[in-house]
Amino acid sequence: MASIPMQQGLLLAGILFAVGLAGLLVRRNVIFMLMSLEIMLNAAGLAFVVAGARWGQADGQIVFLFILTMAAAEVSVGLALVLRIYRRFKTLDADAVSEMRG
């Protein structure tokens, strides 16, 4: 199996991360923001896997597993919050719920 060059893998990870970040900053819907977060997390995970493959170490995969579990936890808490927000404000616009300004 021909190995993919690390540069390409990292480039993909970087692009994914940038897409995720852009989505996070641009979208106002909380669900989409959560999805963008997921993309960013996975981008980071991809970078670990690529790095692990490059040096033939298992560490990369282990960290990716951590990221997966963390992402799952984050999504479950996040979705619960989204439900609460929707019940309370009848909207999912993140800017509309900026109640905690100083």
Partner: peptide, 18 residues
Amino acid sequence: GVRKTETGRMRWYAAGIA
């Protein structure tokens, strides 16, 4: 002065972190 930056908007915070 610093209080002004505390907008309550998550996207601003995210942008700030980035």
